[in-house]
Nucleic acid binder design. Structure first.
Length: 719
DNA sequence: TGTTAATAAATTTTT
DNA sequence: TTTATTAACA
């Protein structure tokens, strides 16, 4: 019987995969190309450890980036082992850090009832904070402060670690960071980056507890290693002192989240920090045709400093990649829809076709045309369930019940539905809270007790406070879904949306009902975490797993998504739309050298999503932000050898040599192009207007900023 | 308090 | 062009 199990673990593997799965103890880096069976290696490795090496599932720590990946891994391992895996710490970095912090809240310096803020909560908190610091939002955009703070935390830097910069702007940001930390501390709030940072600091500073986990986790496995940021890497270092138990899988060519703090360099650091490591490359691809792979290989070869990897397939070359030069974006969408129609007509599944694009804004036209053609489709991205306004309102009430001092939640619902508590009352309330350095809840209690407060204000606040206190008492012993139900009814939230006759109101009511349902299902899930109340667990779940984007996943429909969200997926038929300079690679990525390489990796990801048929399309003219632009075709098209491409011509006529010809406009200038000016120096063309002698171009110069120039006079030199 | 007009901005996104 | 946010208004 044992023997059979080993067969099922090893048989589906190729030699390289088998080598990785059965490797004896040592740090191991698996460089897994797109479609080379990365997840399979990871899951089979775990199965191997448990079945053959007799490692207890409890001593395995497996980390992924998304909940989806974690779920998939768990499912596949259970299928492989015929065993439940609940004893295994398997989850996202954030999920596991959260688990650690809940377990050791006191040692980590957190209140037992600490709450997790999602990005939106964090943004709102910062907006309030900036206001309370009397900083002008226009000069200090909350988004920028948020970005700054998260970037620091991702690097493991606390405000007090940082030396005040000479740059006054950064100095102010640092002050904001400082104030933000204090505010979070005071209100028991933890943002996403804080989960990781706090867990790291806590493990670092508590040698005894660290020793416990070091002993426990005999094996640490990491998926998508190229996406780890500095603090995640430091975290892994702490947990793998033994040096021989870290198994990471990743692909430097698929690192596309550098802008979010991910460090491909971690792969190189790994090689230095774990000198005894082994490196295994998975280069056999089971997904795409030979043409697609050769194109992808050729494209990515334009990047420097790669670890190097060449995908190959045992299958045939397949069809060439089709390139279509559309007149404009309308024509492009029209072309794609026609080909989709054909595909469906041939009896293929719609869900096996995907339209991929660089930016979300591009989806609109495809959607319009798909609607007109009556083809069902699904757009990925956008608001997820737990991010919807009405759901966040309901959760805010629940959070207030769990923790009265959660000011963000207080502000969110104190006047939702309207209770006559307007901006003025809130201003006084905030003022009281600030001077007394207390929470809004305490400030409101204070106002109610103070005889000097105007009667109306006092009445309204008393009402609100009683509502929350009352709800907390009433729902105390109830099952979770009853609690949720009670809250959305008694607070008037449900009634508020039921009365509303707006377009979205009906959907909102449905969503609130769905929330009750989600709570019911959640309560039935096996309880992994010890002493936590169901409500606390549910709130954490809502923040950490925001849910799916759209519900109608079961219908067979065409998939629309950005290149980023396509990572990890595969489709028989792929359209890569908008292959234009300035769009893809995006304009802003042209300004920094490293970012162009990331765009190229993104293109590599896009190409390797296709299993059988791939279309690359671009428009010779595109309306962008209400202006007509005449972009050049993407350099990425030109980086693919023409032997793998075939230009598509509508209306039959077959053209001469395959491959896209660059299409400069009359002046030889196009958006995104680098230029040199005799006086202003080097810059990038942002847009152009008019034609012939009237042609004007807008150029962003490195030194003198953005300028409009007459193309005829400026004597711009292409670079 | 909710609506409307004006204004500004405009990649990529998971946790 | 669309979208979001904000200030002014009824």
């Amino acid at each position: 019987m044992e023997y059979m199990d080993i067969t099922s673990i090893l048989e589906p593997l190729n030699p390289a995969q088998r080598e990785a799965v059965t490797a004896s103890p040592s740090a191991l880096l698996v460089l897994a190309g797109a479609g080379s069976g990365k997840t399979r290696v990871l899951t089979h490795r775990i199965a191997w450890l448990v079945k053959v090496e007799q490692v207890s599932p409890q001593s395995i720590l497996a980390v992924t980036f998304t909940n989806k990946a974690a779920l998939e891994m768990r499912g596949r391992i259970e299928a492989l082992l015929h065993l439940p895996t609940h004893g295994t710490w398997m989850g996202t970095f954030h999920g596991l850090a959260h688990r650690l912090l809940r377990r050791h809240a006191r040692e980590a310096g957190l209140p037992e009832a600490f709450q997790i803020m999602d990005a939106d909560d964090q943004y709102r908190l910062l907006r309030r904070l900036l206001k309370s610091l009397s900083l002008d939002e226009a000069r200090w955009p909350p988004k920028q402060a948020q970005w700054f703070i998260n970037a620091q935390k991702d690097e493991g830097r606390r405000a007090h670690h940082m030396v005040a910069s000479h740059d006054p702007f950064e100095r102010q940001l640092l002050r904001i960071y400082q104030a933000y930390e204090e505010l979070c501390e005071r209100s028991g709030l933890v943002d996403f980056a804080e989960l990781l940072l706090r867990a790291h600091e806590f493990l670092r500073e508590h040698a005894d507890i660290r020793a416990h986990y070091l002993k426990r986790f005999r094996h640490v496995l990491v998926d998508e290693f190229q996406d780890t940021n500095a603090i995640q890497y430091a975290w892994l270092r702490l947990l793998t002192e033994a040096q021989d138990n870290l198994f990471v899988v990743g692909d430097d060519d698929q690192s596309i989240y550098g802008w979010r703090g991910a460090k491909v360099e971690n792969i190189f650091r790994f090689q230095k920090d774990y000198p005894g490591h082994r490196l295994i490359r998975l280069e056999q691809n089971y997904r795409s045709t030979g043409n697609i792979l050769s194109a992808a290989n050729a494209l990515i070869a334009h990047n420097e400093g790669r670890l190097g990897k060449t995908l190959w397939t045992a299958g045939g070359a397949g069809e060439p990649i089709a390139v279509y030069a559309a007149f404009n974006e309308q024509d492009e969408a029209y072309f794609v829809i026609e080909r989709l129609r054909q595909w469906i007509h041939e009896g293929n599944r719609r869900s096996e076709a995907a339209i991929l694009y660089r930016s979300n804004a591009q989806s609109r036209l495809f959607e319009e045309k798909l609607v007109a053609a009556g083809i069902p489709y699904r757009v990925y991205g956008g608001l997820r369930f737990f991010e919807r306004a009405e759901i966040k309102d309901a959760l805010a009430y629940l959070r207030l019940i769990a923790n009265r001092h959660d000011d963000g939640s207080f502000e969110r619902v104190v006047n939702t539905p309207t209770r006559g508590i307007g901006a003025k009352s809130l201003d006084t309330l905030r003022e009281v809270a600030r001077t007394r350095r207390c929470s809004l809840w305490e400030a409101a209690s204070g106002l109610c007790a103070d005889a000097g407060t105007p009667g109306r204000t006092r009445l309204l606040f008393t009402h609100f406070l009683q509502l929350i206190d009352g709800l907390a008492q009433e729902t105390a012993g109830l099952p979770l879904y009853e609690q949720v139900k009670c809250v959305i009814e008694k607070t008037g939230l449900l009634g508020h949306y039921q009365k509303d006759k707006g377009e979205q109101a009906e959907a909102r009511v449905e969503n609130l009902e769905e929330l009750v349902n989600a709570a019911r299902l959640f309560d039935h899930e096996p309880q992994e975490d010890d002493a936590l109340s169901p409500l606390t667990r549910f709130l954490a779940h809502a923040a950490l797993e925001a849910g799916e984007g759209q519900a109608d996943a079961d219908e067979d429909c065409v998939q629309l998504m950005t290149l980023h969200s396509a990572k990890g997926l595969e489709f028989q038929l792929v359209f890569l739309a908008g292959m234009e300079e300035g769009l893809f690679p995006s304009l802003q990525s042209l300004e920094e050298a490293g970012r162009l390489e990331e765009e190229r990796r993104l293109c590599y990801v896009g190409l390797t999503r296709a299993k059988r048929r791939l279309y690359l399309t671009y428009a010779e003219s595109r309306r962008l932000y209400g202006r007509e632009t005449y972009p050049r075709s993407s350099r990425f098209l030109r980086e693919i050898p023409t032997e793998h491409l075939q230009e598509v011509r509508l209306r039959g006529a077959i053209s001469g040599p395959p491959g896209p010809a660059p299409t400069p406009d009359a002046e030889g200038l196009s958006v995104g192009q680098g230029v040199r000016h005799a006086v202003f120096g080097e810059g990038i063309v942002l847009q152009s207007e008019g034609a012939g002698s009237q042609c004007r171009v807008q150029v962003k110069f490195a030194e003198v900023g953005v300028k409009w120039l007459m193309a005829g006079y400026a004597k711009l030199q292409s670079i």
